[in-house]
Design a protein around this nucleic acid. Structure first.
Lengths: 185, 185
DNA sequence: CCGTAAAATAAACGCGGGTTTACATAACGT
DNA sequence: ACGTTATGTAAACCCGCGTTTATTTTACGG
């Protein structure tokens, strides 16, 4: 048993370090621009370990995205303030933190990442969302929600368009809240 | 003067052929996945001609996107049926045709293409749109519009999410029209 | 202690990318 | 008609990528 910190040899710890680094990198760079050497150097390990612990770059991406996708931040509250809550979440989320939405948008570009993203999005977000919405048009509502959220984030983070990038004005936040709330009602 | 069709040597014609092929390819594949050899083979010419006629892949992308971006399809009509008109445009546009929206979304992934896309979007779409909107919050309205349109198209074409991909239901089209119209009013 | 297996590394491999270079061929002025 | 220039091609170059292989280093049970 080793209780010291630092450069101990621990497979689990190393795999986690790679996963965390991958999540950070994949949140800012596209699948093809995010080099395995970038990720592993951020984690402080050798590129070959990706093969060992995750099998391939694609599998690593899947693990990274899957670990980040969490529907509870969306539906973990009442339906009344749904729009307000999500609008606050989306406008306050910084660029620097790990975020599933940029990862999703960035994934749309690469064929491999796109397949993985669509599958995970369906299973981890859409399906619970449909369950939560209920009703005949639940699928449509869920799709509208992710579409608006993704579009908003695209121009807030990836293509920083001035009124949306940086600090979001109260007016735009209100518009976002209203638009999202309309999807629920 | 050569009036025959086919394999005549005409620099302008060749450059146009490359540009058209580039627009098609860049509408379906990301900047990094769209190989110059794919584009030039579709145009029926040699890859080296990209260097000659456009300077670089990045310049070719810029020319291709610039040629396709057209704000008139957005503002070329009355304000009353703005939402309806755009909703019909966005839901009827097929995957196969050249389309600026997929190009934009796909461009967000690559660093080089992103810079070009943001600059062109600003100059060719946002600014005329702001002019057309008028008023104090014109920038905000323009940004909201492109955000919603882009989000919608992301899940309609690139990440084909079922209720949005393929044939769009009347309910969703109505929702889109209403959402877009609310941005104008 | 020591030997064995796990963990991590270093270096190379194969491949495809954009781009450049050298060469071939068609068009056009004189 | 011919030589010059524009146009197009073929092949190579250089680079970075994901991945594999061979080797070194650490941990742990006997």
């Amino acid at each position: 048993m080793n209780t010291s910190v630092g450069k101990v040899r621990d497979a689990e710890r190393t795999a986690r370090a790679i996963l965390r680094a991958a999540q950070k990198i994949f949140s800012t760079r596209s699948y093809s621009e995010a080099g395995l050497r970038d990720i592993t150097s951020m984690a402080g390990v050798n590129p070959a370990l990706v093969s060992r612990y995750f099998g391939s770059k694609e599998k690593l991406f899947e693990a990274a995205l899957s670990d980040v996708l969490d529907v509870d931040v969306l539906i973990g509250g009442g339906r009344e303030d749904f729009g307000e809550r999500l609008a606050r979440l989306f406008t306050e989320a910084g660029v620097e933190q790990i975020n599933p939405l940029p990862m999703l948008v960035l994934a749309t570009a690469d064929t491999k990442a796109r397949k993985v993203a669509l599958r995970l999005l369906q299973a981890r977000i859409i399906e619970p969302l449909v369950e939560w919405f209920g009703g005949a048009d639940a699928e449509e509502r869920a799709a509208r929600l992710v579409a608006v959220a993704t579009g908003f984030f695209t121009f807030r983070i990836l293509l920083p368009l001035e009124p949306l990038a940086g600090e979001v004005s109260p007016a735009t936040r209100q518009w976002l809240a209203k638009t999202l709330q309309a999807i629920v009602d």
